[in-house]
Amino acid sequence: MLRSDIFPSPSPLHIPDGFLSMGVLIVCWILSIIGIGVALVRTRRALGERQVPVMGVLAAFIFAAQMLNFTIAGGTSGHFLGAALAAILLGPWAAMLTMTTVIAIQALLFQDGGLLALGGNILNMAVIGPIVAYGFYRGVRTLLGNRRGSTLVAGFVAAWVSIVVAAVACAMELGFSGTSPIGISLPAMAGIHALIGIGEGLITVGALALVLTTRPDLVEAERAPVPAGMRWVWGGLAIAIVLTLLSPLASPHPDGLERVAEDLGFIERAQEPLYEVIPDYVFPGIPNEALATIAAGIVGTLIVYGIAVGLAALFRRREQVA
């Protein structure tokens, strides 16, 4: 039986083999292994002998939950990655190991994502995803206080950000590998996943609401003390900003455009429309293109954070009125 018979659509986040260059693969593997290594030590301390059964069954849960889908319109359907839900319910370290196992077994058993490319897929969905999700979750909750509504808003934000950041990381890996020009793949991946992320956010909120009602003790409430919590907030924000900082460098030939313009004047005409897809990504008024992109990236990240805080404040007021 094909995996696609059961799982509606292969996620565009699972990179197959052959798409990443050796250099990118090595960097991804090193970062993934560091993340997994730290997570292994941390979960052993936190879960002890319950580690294997709890994480194993919950990894199976993430896998099975990815089957759940809902109709968006016509034949398309939204479904679920689960990194944010896992990070919120299990804590970031256990979530990293759970997601790592899920992604590894998807690749081994169903060829959903490549075997060598696992380094990149684990980095995007099992390391960066949970860290960023947990950081934004803690951040929004710290700003909002400990209420039911704020947990749900934080859950939505965390889920959305985790999907978009994973997509951006994926686009950058493809860009650095010379597989897909970053000027096209980054806006395309980020755009598609900004929509997919909404579905992920809604499902995560639905799941959180149910767990909050029936087993509130399971929702990571006050498990981590505030200082440690703040570290996650900064960590999540830092990864989001570092990714935007790196994005303009992701072209393997940063001066390629200029050289082409000189060597073959007529190509310039052909190139231009492709790069006009992203005028919004370049900040007006800054002469250096790379600097402008970086500025745009940072401003964008801050705006997303601002919107999250604003939404949260709105929610809080409504709850006080009610």
Binding site: A65, L68, G78, F80, L85, G199, I203, G206, A207, A209
Partner: peptide
């Protein structure tokens, strides 16, 4: 989506 979320 909420129904699906509750199922999850």
């Amino acid at each position: 989506a909420r129904v699906t979320g509750a199922m999850a």
